[in-house]
Structures are given as C-alpha cells and as structure tokens.
C-alpha cells in the first residue's frame, strides 16, 4: 500500500524540533525544497513526513549581533542581494548565491538549503529505475562506487557554492537541536564521506549562518559550469584575504567535502597551489572530466590570487 504521507508547517523552531522527534523514523526538513522535492521524485528521498520550515519567521531575518552578521537560514538566495550590509561587506556571498541554479529557483531556494545542499553524483542523482538498471551505487545502498569503477568509498561531490564562499570567510553555523543551541564553524561539519557528507544530526536545524563583520575580507569567487546559469558546479573556488593578510583558499566540487588551504599573503604560493591541485581529487561524476577540473583548479586559484594582488 502507499504509505500515509504527512506535511507539517511549524511556526517556531521548538515546534519543528518537536515534529522531528515525533516523526523521527521518516522525516525531512525542507526549506525551499528545490532539491529535496526532485530527490523525492527520483526516489532518493523516501521520507513520509516533510517538515516545511518556511513559516518559521525567526529563521528569516538578517541581524547584527556584536560584530557578527547573522543570516537566517531561510533567507532566500535571491533576497541576499537586497541586504545592504551583505552587499557592502560580503559581496562574494551575493556573487556565489547568484551563481546558484537559475533566477527562478533562487526565489525559492534558501541560503540554509544551499549550504546544506545534498552532495551530488551523476550516478546517484537519477530515478529509481535508472539506479536499479545501473546497479545501485554506495550512496543508494549498493556495494560499490560506480563513478570510480568500483571503489569502496562514495565520492559524491560537495556542490554548495555559497558554503565555499562562506568557509573562506570563516562562517559559523548556529545549530538548534533538542539539546539546545550550538555554534560550530561551517568548515567542521564535513565528514568527507559522500554518503553522509555532514556530521549534523537529521533532527538538528540550521538556524543562522554567522559571519564576522570585522575581518574586511576580500574574496574572489569562481565557478566552472557548462552554461552560464542553472547548472550545479563542476568546480567552485573562493580565495579570501582578510585585513590581517590571512589567506584562505576553499575549493568545492572536487571532493565530498570542501578543500581548505590557509596561508598568509606573504606565503610562497608555489607550494600551496601545488598542494591544492594535488589534494583535489575529482572523480568522473560530472559533465567535465576529472583531469580538466583538476587543471582548472590551478587556473582558477592563480587567477584569484592575481586578482587579489597576492601573486603577480
């Protein structure tokens, strides 16, 4: 029989967490839902209960709190550019947000949803029929990774353009769960495992994304994709330099987690770039080949560092 489906719309975080507890066996939080719903159509999400967060007003505001900017997880990607502080202090975040999906999708998709966007692989983001025909891969309860021709690890790639930029600016996440509120650095949530790429509990909620206002980051963002819109990333890079000349290089789209490299603007970048390229181990799960994406890592990073006047 077709299982009973439930759709809930809590108005507060507490209510949302209560619902999560009640339906803990088979639920999912959805914000914009632009990815989750497609995953449901494809049978990659088979939860019976959807907890729609979009009516929780406390997750929709952008506030300043003691030199920190708090961006509510439900702020829509399209709305970020309307905030003057973000436009002034964190233009790269707007650039990244505007590089996500299409203008239409950005009117529904949220910053929280994009930061926590499910990892993707061309052998996984397929319908149930397709995955059965291909032989289920690791990420859908199979035995091997198809993209690598049989490895015992899932390489589904991290594709969040906004998270890549946010990490380069040392963003923190404010997470609510039944134990209370905790703050964790965004960079620390990644496991490196494509199957379960983040160490957050299913029943925890991302409430705010927090950015330091006093670091005066300059960030160069780049995204590789075949079309100028719509597409998920084949490679995303964000290179930041703070007022203290701390340089952070973040690479998305080439691994199950973002790759992060730290330096000073005075560092010797030859080794750092070499290391970044070497550490980028894309697999063939994308429109572009892994060799090309790896090659582009160096091109993008060089260009970014040049733009920041860090290298010539």
């Amino acid at each position: 029989m077709i299982a009973e489906k439930v759709y809930l719309k809590p108005h507060t975080i507490e209510e949302a967490l209560e619902f999560a507890k009640k339906y803990k066996n088979s639920f999912r939080f959805i914000a914009g839902g632009t990815d989750v719903i497609v995953n449901k159509f494809q049978g990659n999400d088979i939860t019976d209960c959807l907890i729609d967060l979009t009516e929780i007003d406390e997750m929709k505001s952008i506030t300043i709190d003691d030199n920190l900017l708090k961006i509510g997880a439900l702020v829509r990607l399209d709305d970020l550019q309307k905030n003057k502080i973000i436009a002034e202090k964190f233009p790269a975040l707007i650039q990244a947000a505007n590089a996500v999906a299409s203008p239409m999708l950005r009117k529904t998709a949220t910053i929280g949803g994009n930061v926590l966007c499910e990892n993707r692989c061309k052998f996984y983001n397929q319908t149930e029929w397709w995955r059965e025909a291909a032989g289920h891969c690791l990420k859908c309860n199979g035995n091997i990774c198809i993209a690598t021709g049989g490895k015992n690890k899932c390489f589904a790639k991290f594709v969040s353009d906004t998270a890549t930029v946010l990490i380069s600016m040392n963003a923190l996440l404010e997470i609510a769960d039944n134990a209370g509120i905790k703050i964790v650095p965004l960079k620390d949530i990644y496991t490196g495992d494509g199957i379960k790429p983040r160490n957050l509990l299913t029943e925890s909620l991302l409430k705010n994304i927090i950015l330091p206002l006093d670091k005066e980051y300059k960030v160069v963002f780049n995204k590789l994709r075949p079309r100028e819109t719509v597409d998920f990333t084949s490679l995303t890079t964000a290179v930041s330099v703070s007022k203290n000349q701390e340089v952070k290089i973040v690479i998305g789209g080439v691994d199950s987690r973002p790759l992060i490299f730290e330096a000073k603007s005075s560092s010797n970048f030859t080794d750092i770039l070499e290391n970044a390229v070497k550490s980028s181990k894309p697999v063939d799960n994308d429109y572009y080949s892994r060799d090309y994406r790896k090659e582009m890592v160096l091109v993008f990073l060089r260009k970014s560092l040049e733009e920041l006047n860090i290298i010539q």
Binding site: Y7, T54, K107, T108
Partner: peptide
C-alpha cells in the same frame, strides 16, 4: 511558473500545502 502572493514559484516542485 505561477505567482503565489505575487511572487513567481515553480509549481511542479512546490508542495501545494506549503
């Protein structure tokens, strides 16, 4: 695409109950 309270929404991936 439809307009919901004046804003465009992609109705094929939007749960009606929202």
């Amino acid at each position: 695409t439809v307009l919901v309270n004046g804003e465009p929404v992609l109705s094929c991936i939007t749960p009606a109950l929202r």
